[in-house]
Measured scan of single mutants.
Amino acid sequence: MMITLRKLPLAVAVAAGVMSAQAMAVDFHGYARSGIGWTGSGGEQQCFQTTGAQSKYRLGNECETYAELKLGQEVWKEGDKSFYFDTNVAYSVAQQNDWEATDPAFREANVQGKNLIEWLPGSTIWAGKRFYQRHDVHMIDFYYWDISGPGAGLENIDVGFGKLSLAATRSSEAGGSSSFASNNIYDYTNETANDVFDVRLAQMEINPGGTLELGVDYGRANLRDNYRLVDGASKDGWLFTAEHTQSVLKGFNKFVVQYATDSMTSQGKGLSQGSGVAFDNEKFAYNINNNGHMLRILDHGAISMGDNWDMMYVGMYQDINWDNDNGTKWWTVGIRPMYKWTPIMSTVMEIGYDNVESQRTGDKNNQYKITLAQQWQAGDSIWSRPAIRVFATYAKWDEKWGYDYTGNADNNANFGKAVPADFNGGSFGRGDSDEWTFGAQMEIWW
């Protein structure tokens, strides 16, 4: 008995050590931004985005507190085989008060198993909700290839000249389909599951310092038995992507060409959309029709120009041509140079221009935006974070068209359509004006 009692403290210590080691193995990653800002004409900070554009130049032009908190852990490992559990909870508030209630979004919860298939060394099996191989332009917060959501897949299969990845994910639309009631009355209240099937071939070395990635995505509306879509709904579509990445000037340049059809055009990033119906009456549900095509040509990157200068840049042309004439032509160009006074202090400027032409009206909206920021960051790279910055932003815009969301679809035949700025004596778009804002912001990723 005495021997047992003497061994007990040692056993407890060993158990505590094991539990401590396991606790220390938890990975904590994430992203956050928050700050305070004012508008020159009075009131809180207002942000500037061109009507019809899918993004905006973000430096000194973000008006919310946003965070993603990721917890993950390698829960099992034997040799080169392992299982990893990953989670991500995100939230966004308007940064107007101390207490701002919000419903967090559970954006990731997945398990990734590496090297589980003997004859596919280096590959990963995964299932669950996941940010899946996302491609974006940081300076405009624009995701041009992103099929994230609940799904499953097999990735990084070594095929000799590259890595092959296969995945299936889902994005549902509210009110996407109906069941038959009586007297030809349909009640569009059932969600429609939109499935996306993704095939990618990446890391193909085609020139010194250059790699090529090719991808095909097929999206479709997956209806339940005895349900139907509204007439004209976009049932399926394709997205084709080619991306060349070149190492240059201690950074990279990415050149991207994408072509999409029908349900893959509205978001243009790989998620299927077009079966959703915002109104019970299918007579007024025309606005979900996105049959047509999209072409996107994009070049972006980040480079170092000597010891003291870094720069991000982007140039993009996007043409969404829809059968219902509600598409757009959008082109944007911008730069973000950074001058480093010390390894932790810099001055950053961002200059961006957007131009969006309405397919329906032929009119154009444009905006110039310039931001000057003094910044303190954890390192001497344009990617170094955390960063604390004080900024001043000036924007000038001239908008000739907007979307008509007055009333509702039952009493407005133009609901959701592009109209000229002065349509029917109204005021659509943001008109011709300018404004400036100033404030302070922190940004961090880890």
Results as ranks from 00 to 15, higher is better:
F428I: 14
E108D: 10
E64K: 15
A101V: 08
N290I: 02
A13S: 08
Q246K: 05
I382N: 12
K250Q: 13
K235N: 07
A127V: 06
D262Y: 03
Q375L: 15
I125L: 15
M305L: 13
D380V: 10
W99R: 04
G379R: 13
A395D: 07
S247G: 01
G362D: 00
H300Q: 07
L8H: 12
N194H: 07
N61Y: 14
Q96E: 09
D398G: 03
P104Q: 13
W76S: 10
V159I: 13
I206T: 14
A413E: 12
H138N: 13
T241S: 13
A260G: 04
A152V: 10
T265S: 07
V18I: 02
A13V: 04
V14A: 08
M139K: 05
V256G: 06
A90S: 08
Q96R: 09
N324S: 02
G176S: 00
D231Y: 10
W436C: 14
D380N: 08
S92P: 14
K70N: 09
A440V: 05
A25S: 05
G35D: 01
L214P: 00
G30C: 03
M1L: 13
Y405S: 12
G43S: 00
A221S: 10
M204I: 11
V256A: 03
N290K: 06
M24V: 03
D354E: 09
A278E: 10
T406I: 02
R6P: 03
N308S: 07
V216D: 09
N365Y: 07
E108V: 11
D98N: 03
Y186H: 03
F415L: 07
I140L: 13
Y91H: 14
V390I: 03
L298F: 01
G151D: 00
S82R: 08
N194S: 05
S384L: 08
N365S: 04
W376L: 09
N424K: 14
D141A: 11
L239V: 07
N183I: 11
G149C: 14
M305V: 00
H29N: 02
Q45H: 12
G251S: 03
G425V: 15
N156K: 15
A94S: 09
G232V: 11
K396E: 01
S381R: 14
L71M: 12
N308T: 04
D354Y: 13
K364E: 00
D27G: 03
G276C: 13
N408T: 09
I382F: 08
V277A: 13
P337L: 00
N226T: 15
V93G: 12
N287I: 03
N290Y: 11
T328P: 09
E68D: 12
V89L: 08
K235I: 04
G292S: 00
V356I: 04
G35A: 08
P337Q: 06
A23T: 03
Q267K: 11
N291T: 14
A409D: 04
D187G: 00
Q112K: 15
D86V: 06
G35S: 01
C47F: 08
V137G: 14
D434A: 10
A285V: 03
L116P: 09
I206L: 15
E74K: 05
A193S: 10
R336C: 00
Y31F: 07
D198Y: 11
A233T: 02
W38L: 06
